[in-house]
Simulated assay, not measured.
Amino acid sequence: MHICFITNEYPKLDFPHGGIGTFIHTISHKLVEKGHRVSVIGINSYTFTDEKEQDGDVFVHRLRPKIVKGLTWYFNNQLINKKLTEIHNQSPIDIVETSELGLAFIKKIKPIKYMIRLHGGHHFFAEAEHRKVSWWKGFQEKRSFKRADAFSAASQYVKSHTAKYLSYHNKPLEIIKFPINLNVFKPQLTTKVKKNSLLFAGTVCEKKGVEQLLKAMPKVLEHNENIQLYIYGRDWFFSDGRSYIEYLKKDVLPILGESANHVHFMGAISFIDLANKYAASEICIFPSLMETLGLVAPEAMAMNKLVIFSECGPGPEIIVHKKTGLLCNPYDIDDISNQIIWALNHEKECKVIAKNGMEYVLSNFEIETITQKNIDFYNTILNTPN
């Protein structure tokens, strides 16, 4: 089988990337290991050039973007369509997979089947970010969904929440979790844990609940003046180009008083380095306002770490409160601080909770099983009449 992912997110060495990139990288290499061919096509978001990279046996095509005021979307989709046709002519593609908006302007080629994997689209996140749906992006997403042959969702929540806004048109739909690379994210028995250290990882943006986490710090520090919060992740930018991290530093940290000295922005790091940071942290906290699944929580859980995750969205699908982790209300600053304080006060209980969380992830996010579920679903799509 030849699977082609359309995404700009495939990781490039020495550049930051997010959860989608981690997922595509992980699943691509496992598919190749199982004898399938994988290609990746995307507009180059790293450098302003055409690049062809062979990452192991994964073939990555990063296309030089064409910037034309008002028509960039058109010309960039033309580039992707041209590359798709070229690759298909060389080695016939069976499945094209992309995210929610990805099929809006893709020229469909028979007999290729086209699948959307729900990573959290424009409609999905509009509610969490308290913004109106853009008519243009909304149009693209609806058009893309009409053109899809099948859909995959990482959680029941993203499936049902997306259905509030968009139709699946009675096409095949499967819930398949994102896999965790358990060769990387595993307990590190020799790593020394930094006492009183909190870790946040993820894109530093509004929907990840970073601002609320910062505002919870004064109350936590009243309980324990030695707490340090380390924030790992790439920056996010407002539509006017302003940095979200700079916003936090200039507008949020100053109101925290002395607590601001206990907050450290560490920047984006590789997932290998991130595993080491998880291992060295006492508590990992991810108070997201909205997620499709959230890879960081199960990654940290796989490393036998106590995780505080959001009770919103798919949080309860991943964590049973005080059994496999802790859940917090990310909109309630007091609840965020109370969960951290509870964890600091209940070290013995948290060790049991962390162990339960690790066992849950080992049973439910194992890459071999999840990869096979994807392969089985691809075969279902291929055998479904148009």
Rank of each mutant, 00 (worst) to 15 (best):
A126V: 12
L293R: 03
F23D: 01
N356R: 09
N379W: 04
G325R: 04
A150N: 10
M303H: 07
D55P: 00
E299V: 12
I231V: 14
T72W: 01
N8F: 00
W135F: 13
N345E: 14
R131S: 09
Y331G: 05
I176L: 00
P298C: 03
I308A: 06
K355Q: 13
L182Q: 14
V307T: 06
P385L: 00
K305R: 14
Q156E: 09
V68L: 03
Y10K: 07
I175K: 01
P65E: 07
S134H: 11
L274F: 11
I93M: 00
V58R: 02
S281P: 08
Q372N: 15
G325C: 08
P179W: 02
K82D: 10
A216I: 12
E282L: 05
Y244V: 14
T380E: 07
M290C: 13
R234Y: 01
D14L: 11
E299P: 00
F271K: 15
P111I: 04
V204D: 01
K177M: 02
D55Q: 14
L31V: 12
P330E: 02
K277Y: 08
A216G: 12
G42K: 03
Q372H: 14
G18R: 03
K164W: 00
A201P: 01
N374C: 04
S239L: 09
V158F: 01
I67R: 07
L327M: 07
T203L: 04
Q339A: 09
V96Q: 00
I95P: 03
I285S: 08
K159I: 11
P385K: 06
H17F: 14
H61Y: 15
S337I: 10
V210D: 00
P187C: 10
E291K: 06
I6M: 01
D57M: 06
R147Y: 02
F286N: 11
E51S: 15
I367E: 07
H88F: 09
D334R: 04
F265G: 02
V320S: 13
D332P: 02
F237H: 11
S337V: 09
I93H: 01
G241A: 10
L362H: 13
E299L: 03
D55W: 04
P179Q: 05
I227A: 08
N77D: 01
I341R: 03
L71C: 12
Y165I: 08
Y244A: 10
G21F: 02
D57I: 06
L326Q: 04
S167M: 13
F265M: 10
N226L: 09
Y46P: 04
T98L: 00
G257R: 06
A216T: 11
Y247R: 08
V32G: 04
L327D: 03
K12F: 05
P287W: 01
K110G: 05
K146D: 09
Y360P: 01
T72L: 00
T162L: 07
